[in-house]
Each structure stands twice: as structure tokens, then as C-alpha cells.
């Protein structure tokens, strides 16, 4: 009974994190982006520096009419936001935050689980793009699919490199085997993983599938109200998940220069937040890549780099064992 209770409590904690963190990241993005552009960002909602802006946005979204276009494929159109959002919740269950089993649910093949489930999230965008009965949505869906196919491979290869280094596929297992010199060793893989993850989340500079100057908002063009908000929430949950995964796989998760046991979760948190900041930073700094540049980057830069990282990992692994 207490086992069940503990599991329920863990899942509840994951759910709370899932609801709170994306909002925090969203608010951070508002403010960081504003200041990087010499603006102030939201200042009024909630009184102090607009901290409640996203709450206000949520209220606004909830009040809007839920419109389904006449020609749309009704059920798929309505189902798509859930398909886009839920995988990230599932992934968060498997991300370890601290030592000694501080994880929603430890999984034997955790790396595969997180990558597989993250890939499913893109299915939501595809469903939305197809079911909207809108040419811009369809184009957005096409670009989403093309981007996923191109960037899933380097992401997998980079993650495989870490799994090779650790000799396990389990996320807590990888962290148990971690040493500080893994960071320079797996640096290329880390960069490839992070970049490919950004592309999979369709974050700028890889936001061709939602390029507003060309195709309005891609697959989400026809969405309003809460369903649209769910897509946005999925994007920010994706940022949290990607940052947490990069922190766990390549930056040593709960390991830090000091406070190994008690403050492990804090290290994970700090690394995750720092990576989230980088995601926002990249969005502000770089212009959008063109579709052919996107594909070229994946196939001619990231995949060779990831393969080189795997070779390097293999060589060093053999040398030190």
C-alpha cells in the first residue's frame, strides 16, 4: 500500500512540475527576450514585473471560443493537442532529478523511452496539420514531418554515444557512471543532441514549420482557445524536457562540484534552467534557417558529427577499459 502511495505521490509531483515549469519557462522567455531586445516585457499583470502574465493569458485562452473549421476532420483536429502534449508528461516521469531513486519511475531502457516518446509528440503537429483543412497547416505539417525525420537520427546517435560510454540505457544508471571528464568527452554529442532537440521542438532558429512570415503558424493556424494553449504548453514542456535530458545525459545531472548528496536535485535544476535560458537565448539571437539549410545542417553536419562522437566514444571506451 505504501508503495502505491509513494508511486502516486511521485506521479503527482511530476504532474505538478509538468504544470508549473513550462509556465515559469514561458514567463522567463517573455522577460529575457524583452531585455535582450532592450524592452521590458510584461510589467502589469500580477503587479510585480508582470509575473502573472501567463496566468492572464491562460484565462484569456479559456474564455475564447473553441472553433473547429467546417471542412476539418473534427475528431482528429480535437485530439491533436492532447497527442502533442501528453508525451512530454510521460517523458518527465522518467527523468531523474537526484540520486537514490529520485525519479518518477526508473526505467530499464530510459534513453530509448524518452527519445521514443518525444518522437510521438510530433505526431500531434502532423495530425493538426492534416486535419485543419488549411493549406498553410498542411505545409506546416509537411515541414514538421521532414524536420522530425532529419533530426531524429542525430539525436538518437548522440544519445547512443552516452549510453555506450556508460554501458547502460537507464538514465539513473548513466548518471551513476558519470565522471566530470565526460563533459569534454561527450561535448560534440551534447551539442548535436541539444541542436537536434531544438529542431525537434521547432524552436527558433529551427522554426520553419511554424514560420509566421510564410505559413502563418503552420499546423496550429486554425486553432484557438484552450487547444491552442495546449500546443503552446507542449512547446514549453518540450523545452523543459529537452533541457533536463541534456543536463542528465551530457552535463552530469545531479553531480556537481560540491553538495553531492543533499543538493543533487538542485544541481539538476540549475543545469536545466541554464539550458532553458540557452534555448531562449538562441531564439533571440539567430534568424530562422531556410528549409534546405535545415535539412543540410541535419544530414551533412549533425549526423557526421554524431557518428564521429560515437567513434570517439568507442575508441576511448576501449582504451580505458
Amino acid at each position: 500500500m505504501s508503495d502505491t502511495l509513494a508511486l502516486v505521490l511521485r506521479l503527482l509531483a511530476v504532474f505538478v512540475v509538468f504544470l508549473v515549469f513550462p509556465l515559469v519557462i514561458g514567463q522567463t522567455e517573455h522577460k529575457v527576450m524583452a531585455h535582450m531586445q532592450g524592452r521590458l516585457g510584461p510589467m502589469y499583470a500580477g503587479g510585480f514585473h508582470g509575473w502573472a502574465q501567463l496566468v492572464a493569458d491562460g484565462v484569456k485562452f479559456a474564455q475564447k471560443e473553441d472553433v473547429v473549421p467546417n471542412g476539418a476532420d473534427r475528431r482528429i483536429f480535437q485530439l491533436a493537442p492532447a497527442v502533442a502534449l501528453l508525451p512530454y508528461l510521460l517523458v518527465m516521469v522518467a527523468v531523474p532529478v537526484g540520486p537514490h531513486n529520485a525519479v518518477g519511475q526508473a526505467l530499464d531502457a530510459g534513453v530509448f523511452f524518452v527519445l521514443a516518446v518525444m518522437g510521438v509528440g510530433v505526431l500531434g503537429s502532423l495530425m493538426a496539420g492534416w486535419a485543419s483543412a488549411n493549406k498553410f497547416s498542411l505545409l506546416g505539417g509537411l515541414r514538421t514531418a521532414a524536420q522530425l525525420l532529419a533530426y531524429e537520427l542525430p539525436m538518437l546517435l548522440a544519445a547512443a554515444s552516452v549510453a555506450m560510454a556508460a554501458g547502460t540505457l537507464s538514465l539513473p544508471g548513466i548518471l551513476d557512471a558519470f565522471h566530470w571528464w565526460w563533459v569534454p568527452w561527450q561535448l560534440i554529442g551534447g551539442v548535436v543532441f541539444f541542436t537536434a532537440g531544438l529542431a525537434e521542438l521547432q524552436r527558433p532558429p529551427f522554426d520553419m514549420p511554424v514560420a509566421d512570415s510564410e505559413i502563418i503558424f503552420g499546423a496550429y493556424t486554425e486553432y484557438t482557445g484552450l487547444r491552442f494553449a495546449l500546443f503552446l504548453l507542449a512547446e514549453y514542456a518540450g523545452i523543459v524536457v529537452l533541457s533536463a535530458l541534456t543536463a542528465v545525459l551530457f552535463l552530469g545531472g545531479w553531480h556537481g562540484p560540491f553538495g553531492a548528496d543533499g543538493l543533487g536535485w538542485l544541481w539538476t535544476l540549475v543545469k536545466t534552467v541554464a539550458l532553458c535560458f540557452v534555448v531562449i537565448w538562441l531564439r533571440v539571437t539567430y534568424p530562422r534557417l531556410r528549409e534546405d539549410q535545415l535539412q543540410k545542417l541535419a544530414w551533412t553536419v549533425l549526423i557526421p558529427l554524431a557518428l564521429a562522437q560515437i567513434a570517439l566514444t568507442g575508441v576511448i571506451k576501449v582504451v580505458i577499459s
Binding site: 529575457v32 524583452a34 531585455h35 535582450m36 532592450g38 524592452r39 521590458l40 510589467m43 537565448w281 538562441l282
Partner: peptide
């Protein structure tokens, strides 16, 4: 060039913004 771009945005963030409320 990429690093330079990042530096620009980071420097701007540390400066006081000019928005008049």
C-alpha cells in the same frame, strides 16, 4: 560569427532597457 551574435544579445540584456512606461 555565431558567438558574436550571442554576445550582442547577452550584452543588451545586461543593459538597462530604454522603454518609457
Amino acid at each position: 560569427g555565431l558567438a558574436k551574435g550571442l554576445a550582442v544579445t547577452l550584452r543588451t540584456m545586461t543593459r538597462k532597457s530604454v522603454t518609457a512606461q
